[in-house]
Design a protein around this nucleic acid. Sequence first.
DNA 1: GAGTATTGGATACCTCTACTATCTATGTTA
DNA 2: TAACATAGATAGTAGAGGTATCCAATACTC
Lengths: 205, 205
Amino acid sequence: MRISDLSRRSGVSVTTIKYYLREGLLPPGRQTAATQAEYDDQHLRRLRLIRALTGVRGLSVSTTREVLDALGEHAGDTHTLLGLALGSVRVGEEPAGDAPEAGEVRALVEELGWDVHESAPARATLAETLSTLRSLGVPVDRHTLLPYARLAERTAELDLGQLDGIADPLEAAERALLLTVLLEPALMALRRLAQENESARRHAN
Amino acid sequence: MRISDLSRRSGVSVTTIKYYLREGLLPPGRQTAATQAEYDDQHLRRLRLIRALTGVRGLSVSTTREVLDALGEHAGDTHTLLGLALGSVRVGEEPAGDAPEAGEVRALVEELGWDVHESAPARATLAETLSTLRSLGVPVDRHTLLPYARLAERTAELDLGQLDGIADPLEAAERALLLTVLLEPALMALRRLAQENESARRHAN
DNA sequence: GAGTATTGGATACCTCTACTATCTATGTTA
DNA sequence: TAACATAGATAGTAGAGGTATCCAATACTC
């Protein structure tokens, strides 16, 4: 398959594909001559994945590259991979600009009895959200978050349940990534609809 | 309060405040002379809100403006307001580029017994996600989403429960907005941590 | 085997977003 | 009254995410 075929079958322009190649999102094709290279179904699949992550979820090109690199490196290690996706990716070490709420997040995690890495970026996200909401006068603390966390546990069970029975580790890793990242807007959309419904119910009384 | 005080107390530079004024994110101050205007605590509050929406949640300036406008217009109408936030805002009419999955989303909503607007943008988000995941070979349908939706119902109950006992309608509207939009990254962070925990549990067996 | 089209690779350019800087006429403050 | 702040206008900037063009080498088409 040449670049024009790849373009036609993916709906992505040749210049954009070249851009992705330059940016290292897409691995180079197999060179058959000085000005010719062969691409295969892996490339097509990767290209669709790129468009899904940048389009649906709005990941930046550089974040997408990190996620895809991690996918390749940790293909056998679904457990590690699950900690890597989303905007809060930061595969390497992060600055960790500690919010004062970090301790409260730790207490929450302890109360939940969760076994999660101390360095998980999601912890910082939680602390930052708590801090921001409080500065705006919204009273939230770990007791507010606890019931949400219990629901998150059940969500995670559903997520992991969907990976059962996938033998190929690369495929399992890729599916984990897709379910984690691409399902996010869908879950938020469901929440929005549920809020509307719940609001209607309450006003009906 | 003059613009420099507003800047100092909010941590936002004077030039950026001027930019927000120009863009209509921040209402103009009360003019006291040709080159002087007074700002008050409302402006400070609004400014903090702007930074929270654009910073934490990453909303664009134009989306933020739409959300804030909606906040003012529908202050008394929390029910309507709840349908407006997030990246999928689109307060006005949207193009509605129907995915073929729209019918499936309708069936799901019906099965759930939810009372939600036919035009809710979250429906399109769901349909688009289904479509994208399928094109990548992930088998998802409304039966997959149903248990997630049940959890979303319980999340929405928690959300709405936090608005109880707020008398002032503008305040209730603002809090609804904050909880809907700013809690999103936190909920996704909880899900990530829960996934990690669940993954660890399963591997321990 | 000639002529036309396509390709990989390099470089320049473009559009949009979110600011940032500068200028001017007017005000305020010490 | 001199130094400094302010509103409002206009222009400039940096980064992201492409897009367009050029070139020499190669591949199909007759």
